[in-house]
Amino acid sequence: MSKRSYSAEEKYEILKELDEHYSTYELESKYNVHPSTILEWKHKYDKCGFEGLKESSTWKKYSKELKLAAIRDCQSGEYSI
């Protein structure tokens, strides 16, 4: 299955069909999207609504201090990566 990006609107339309009693496997055939991906979208939609279907387009920024603290924690052997 090739990797394809779906817009929030496309994801919503697929989820509407899921609610109309189509199975994830039927939707897989129709839209070429893995059933587990559809279920992940459903979880995000149930939790956050339509906003949950939108992809994050920003990188998260972490301070130098936080990064160094993470490295120290990992090197201490107390925590893993």
Rank of each mutant, 00 (worst) to 15 (best):
M1P: 06
M1I: 10
S2P: 14
S2A: 09
S2Y: 05
K3H: 09
R4M: 09
S5V: 10
S5N: 10
Y6G: 04
S7W: 03
A8E: 13
E9F: 07
E10H: 09
E13R: 13
L15H: 03
K16M: 11
L18C: 01
L18P: 00
L18I: 01
D19R: 15
H21I: 00
H21M: 05
S23L: 00
T24K: 05
T24Y: 06
T24G: 04
T24P: 06
Y25N: 04
Y25E: 07
E26H: 01
L27T: 01
E28F: 08
E28Q: 11
E28D: 06
E28Y: 04
K30W: 01
Y31W: 05
N32M: 07
V33P: 02
H34V: 04
T37N: 11
I38M: 06
I38S: 01
L39D: 02
E40F: 08
W41M: 05
K44Y: 09
Y45H: 14
Y45V: 03
D46V: 00
K47C: 01
K47W: 00
K47M: 04
C48M: 09
C48S: 15
G52R: 01
G52K: 01
E55T: 06
E55C: 03
S56H: 04
S56P: 00
S57C: 09
W59I: 05
W59M: 08
K60L: 07
K61P: 00
K61F: 02
Y62G: 01
S63A: 09
E65F: 09
L66K: 14
L66V: 10
L66D: 12
L68V: 11
L68P: 00
A70Y: 10
I71E: 14
I71Y: 14
I71Q: 14
R72T: 11
R72S: 12
D73H: 15
D73A: 15
C74V: 15
Q75M: 14
S76F: 05
G77S: 05
Y79Q: 14
S80H: 15
I81M: 12
I81Y: 15
